[in-house]
Design a protein around this nucleic acid. Structure first.
Lengths: 242, 242
DNA sequence: CCCGTCGTGACTGCCTACAGTATACGGAGC
DNA sequence: GCTCCGTATACTGTAGGCAGTCACGACGGG
């Protein structure tokens, strides 16, 4: 995330293998192929991805740093199993960071940048109308990321990006019922940013994120049963074994 | 940072070597033995600490994740060289996180916990009076950490802790001139928390952190010259060589 | 029948070794 | 004398391998 670099964004020529592994594992986690609480055995993953254990280890530590897996010393890595409480806290923090981002964005955004936001918003609304959940979620993330970038605060942007990615994990099943209203809120937000009305932008973003949080919680309350204490036991045989 | 655990804080028996290395390197960076922009050669550090390269690599990646070093693929690790702009952004984010923490702390804190805060505050003021900068800074961090813990939001607490540690790096030279007033503000903050006055606590914390930020910036403006474009060249001979 | 103890297997943590690559130095050409 | 290029060096990235350790299962005792 080079945030708002001045045009000369440095792209390291050799993409380290650990990052490729990181992306791959992240995809496996988000897509659910690696289930919550599952024990991740380094050698199995290494064999699965066709690399050695070392890049896998490093990728697992990166994932641990961002809260995707839990690293138990001497015991290995386990896919993080988020509790309802934690999700709520995460959404609260997101609300905080994004609200501030919106406030700052309203102060700094140029007309050209506002246009980019509008374009994103239009595409997002189209995807929603078409019922394309995955694209909708992706565009939602992209729009929020764009706003944080406009805050002109790289540190804030990085933190928000990190939190957003985790939120996105829980968010996908919620996206459907947020539907159209979410994008109408986005449109209102962009208007406020275009006007340079910081207070208004912050207020809208606050309402928007809190709305999402409410929807998430209500959904959680419905399918209530959930977590029968996830498996922390050491796995001997599992879905990865052929 | 197990945040607000309920008494049974899990302490993994074998402390991984990478964490010890992490701590050691962090100390070397904060104390200035590793200067800004310096190229960190894995093998040298490994020899220095008497371990192999692997734990050093992993520690460097942890440090990179928290913004202490920059990892250039195929080139190695360099001690991060924070710009004035970045420091300002960091302080702004800290203000945001800590303000929210204070607000939440005021809602959740028990009388017993407030007492702990007061004790910390008293010790801090004593250290300041005694002119013990290091202890003052340490207690300052501890107090702020205690407040974020009282927010009862582990995610917020972790983020704030991370940001605070980085702030502390820049903060040490500033601590002296913040002096007594800082601890008076702390005392006022604790009063607000004790009263359960969330709004007041937030306001005080906002003013407190913004005050710190102002002092930092003014100090920066004074010793203005600064950064003669730090060394990014690859080092062949250096202070680590014996 | 339940509980403590020992044996076994498997996985992590760490070290060593190799290959690829970017940088720095020295020499040849202009 | 300056620039360009070849060679050498040293560092990173990756692989493989060994020892320590944790968990599980079986056996024997209460």
């Amino acid at each position: 995330m080079p945030s708002h670099s001045g045009g000369a964004m440095k792209i390291p020529r050799p993409i380290p293998l650990r990052e490729s592994v990181f992306e791959a594992l992240l995809e496996l986690i988000i897509s659910g192929q690696l289930t919550r609480g599952q024990h991740l055995v380094e050698s199995e993953l290494a064999a699965l991805l066709g690399v050695s254990r070392q890049p896998v280890r490093e990728a697992l530590q990166l994932l641990s740093g961002e809260g995707w897996v839990d690293l138990h010393p001497g015991q290995g890595a386990f896919v993080h199993s988020p509790t309802a409480e934690e999700a709520d806290q995460l959404l609260a923090v997101r609300a905080l960071l994004e609200t501030e981002s919106a406030r700052l964005a309203a102060r700094h955004a140029t007309a050209e940048e506002v246009e980019r936001l509008r374009a994103l918003c239009a595409r997002g609304m189209a995807a929603t109308e078409a019922g394309d959940i995955d694209t909708t979620v992706a565009l939602n993330s992209e729009l929020h990321a764009a706003v944080t970038e406009l805050s002109r605060n790289a540190v804030l942007g990085d933190l928000a990006a990190q939190v957003s990615r985790r939120v996105r994990w829980y968010y996908t099943p919620v996206a459907a019922r947020r539907g159209r209203s979410s994008w109408e809120e986005h449109a209102a937000l962009i208007d406020a940013i275009a006007d340079g009305d910081a207070g208004q932008a912050a207020t809208i973003m606050r309402a928007h994120t809190e709305h999402t949080r409410t929807v998430y919680l209500s959904r959680l309350a419905e399918e209530h049963p959930a977590s029968p204490e996830p498996v922390r036991r050491r796995r001997r045989r599992g879905p990865l074994d052929s």
